[in-house]
Design a protein around this nucleic acid. Structure first.
Lengths: 106, 106
DNA sequence: ACTTAATATCAAATTTAATTGATATATAAT
DNA sequence: ATTATATATCAATTAAATTTGATATTAAGT
């Protein structure tokens, strides 16, 4: 019989959530992708692949990682998938100083 | 003969720096360590090891990762090493909302 | 219907990071 | 000097993330 450590459990959940988000951010290629999405707005995979010079399957892999933690969003039109930076989520996680990296205006 | 892509190079460096910082943040155990350092202020390794329930060598490994990217600082006194959260660096990287996780007052 | 184009997914190979237990180093206490 | 304590580092293992090339899926154009 043990007591339920409520606060610790909820902290643990919080740490889990942020671990996933930071993992997604912890990669140069993905930071570059986010930067490009920020600069160009909604962009389809094939255009993005050209911009980053990355094979399509590899790019899809990295986009999925960013999508799964809600740092980017996806909209499908026909066979095209358009990805976009989730500015709200970026603002929620990063300092305004850092967010600046992911703002078209800066 | 090729032109030097100055802007891209400096962007690449920026991404490298943040990759390393986010990598350090991308781990539940390390987030927990940072949280404890925030709550308790300057703490020596043996006390911290007890708090996180982690073998000493493992803890030292994780502390080094945080230290290397300047998210924590270290001060040695005799055989003891005292680690402390680098509040400035945390503020520089994370949103104020998130920083709150690493503020004693919140 | 058939072909082409865009994207996602998969399995295998590779690379990178984390864990473990042992050992080294350095200070402090006796 | 010897012993005990705190911490860091190392080599070996294990685990996780990334890359690659191939294939599947789905919509569009002819």
């Amino acid at each position: 019989m043990k007591t339920i450590p409520f606060i610790d459990t909820s902290l643990e959940k919080t740490f889990q959530v942020y671990e996933a988000k930071f993992k997604a951010l912890a990669d140069q290629k993905r930071l570059h992708i986010m930067y490009l999405l920020c600069q160009h707005g909604s962009t389809c995979v094939c255009d993005l692949a050209e911009m980053v010079g990355m094979p399509q399957s590899k790019l899809s892999y990295h986009l999925k990682i960013l999508l799964d933690v809600n740092l980017i969003t996806k909209a499908t039109k026909g066979t095209w998938s358009y990805y976009e930076l989730n500015q709200d989520e970026v603002n929620h996680v990063l300092s305004s100083e850092l967010c600046c990296l992911f703002r078209p205006s800066c």
